[in-house]
């Protein structure tokens, strides 16, 4: 029956409404979306096989080309996955679901946390799938390098989860990935994910370091390639993360403010 007494005593959910069942249902929803799965799992694997078979380039900077390509494609996959996960916000705002959620105790920060974790989980799947494809087809790396580069390719994708969120708040549309997808392709190519920058024309080499993919690609390949760690990689990653996560935060505040 309708309770009347002691309204103040009614409980408020812990963690602003964040809970594992919610997370599980969100992940299941993401996996049910065929386009997202295609984009974050099938496309990277297909690209990997394409690049592997289409060109037999000389070993880049002392390491085998297959491994360099594999790590680059894994970063690309993690980036697609993380961005699509973050961009779910866009779809949910377009549908009005965000407004529906504001009638529940769910705190906006808990909502964003759920979106980021979901995006990163999909990114992890993407990295693992590409690495498994690499392993099966004979890519050679030391055990430590396998683990470390997978971890780096995955963790650095956080910048793209922020990018997805950012775009989600900029473009409230159900087709946001059709706009972002090609943009990610451009970032990936010019940042040297598909083919290392050193093998590309010099004009591209001069644009490359400004791409949001540049730092991520170089850092994820560092365990494989070794050599000196170039601080501009980290600078690139930090600056882009600040821009995208900061932008997403500003837009998110504006979106959830009471008007």
């Amino acid at each position: 029956m309708i309770p009347t007494a002691n309204f103040d005593a009614r409980p408020v959910p812990a963690f602003g409404g964040f809970n594992l069942t919610f997370l599980y249902l969100e992940v299941r929803r993401l996996l049910r979306n065929r386009r997202t799965v295609l984009l974050s799992v099938v496309v990277p694997v297909a690209l990997f096989f394409l690049f592997r078979s289409a060109r037999r380039l000389p070993a880049a900077e002392g390491a085998n080309f297959e491994a360099v390509t594999m790590v680059g494609i894994a970063v690309y996959g993690a980036m697609l996955a993380a961005t699509s996960g973050g961009a779910m916000v866009s779809v949910e705002r377009a549908l009005g679901w965000s407004r529906q959620l504001r009638l529940t105790p769910l705190r906006p920060a808990a909502y964003v946390a759920i979106k980021l974790i979901t995006a990163m989980l999909l990114g992890l799947v993407s990295v693992l799938v590409v690495f498994v494809a690499g392993g099966i087809t004979g890519v050679q790396m030391s055990a430590g390098t396998w683990v470390l580069s997978a971890l780096l390719a995955w963790v650095t994708a956080l910048v793209f989860a922020s990018f997805g969120l950012f775009m989600g708040y900029v473009l409230p549309t159900e087709n946001v990935m059709q706009i972002i997808g090609p943009l990610l392709g451009v970032f990936a190519f010019f940042g040297g994910l598909f083919v290392p920058l050193s093998l590309l024309p010099s004009a591209i080499q001069s644009i490359g370091p400004y791409m949001p993919t540049y730092g991520v690609a170089a850092i994820a390949r560092y365990p494989l390639l070794g050599g000196t760690f170039d601080p501009t990689w980290l600078l690139n990653l930090v600056v882009w993360t600040l821009i995208l996560a900061g932008g997403a935060m500003v837009l998110f505040r504006r979106d959830t403010r009471r008007v």
Binding site: R29, E92, W97, R99, Q100, L103
Partner: peptide
């Protein structure tokens, strides 16, 4: 609400 949306894929 009039404006409260629903997720179509659930």
């Amino acid at each position: 609400l009039q404006t409260g949306g629903l997720l179509k894929d659930l």
